[in-house]
């Protein structure tokens, strides 16, 4: 019915995957978008240069929450080397919908937080230009 609210996006919004707390995560990063109040905290367990486990908490719009949920599924088991190359296109592929500039910021917030968790803020530069 609505591009933006495809079945799968609503499903991730209503039934978020990997949402919750992690005890003693190796990396954790909290980020938010003050314009709309979206916020997300990413917690990572890293072993042998790979994402062993991921949890996230947050609140916000459908797009930011579905993005966090989908991303959390996608990054499990991935090497950090590979994650370093992920950008805007990757998130848009996961969501599978076209997004305008405002909603793109919502969609990219979880990846931005994830990369900041692993590499610090310098790892996020390429995603700032939305």
């Amino acid at each position: 019915m609505y591009d933006l609210y495809a079945e799968e996006i609503l499903d991730h919004y209503k039934f978020p995957r990997n949402r919750g707390k992690m005890d003693n995560p190796d990396r954790v990063y909290h980020d938010h978008n003050p314009l709309c109040g979206d916020e997300v905290t990413i917690m990572l367990r890293i072993e042998d240069g790979r994402v062993k486990d991921v949890k996230w908490e947050g609140q916000g719009c459908t797009i930011s929450m579905a993005s966090a949920s989908m991303l959390s599924e996608a990054v499990k088991g991935k090497s950090l080397e590979e994650l370093r190359t992920w950008g805007k296109e990757h998130v848009l592929d996961l969501l599978g919908i076209p997004l305008g500039p405002v909603r793109l910021k919502c969609a990219l917030l979880p990846l931005k937080a994830l990369k900041a968790a692993v590499w610090g803020l310098e790892g996020t530069e390429e995603h700032e230009e939305t």
């Binding site: 933006l4 709309c36 916000g60 459908t62």
Partner: peptide, 25 residues
């Protein structure tokens, strides 16, 4: 329901409303 989602849903119905902090945080 996040305000962005409210506004985006209404947009599909041809209804223009604004969502955000309206320059008054």
């Amino acid at each position: 329901v996040h305000p962005h989602d409210v506004a985006a849903f209404l947009d599909y119905e041809g209804i223009a409303v604004r969502a955000g902090h309206h320059c008054a945080q």
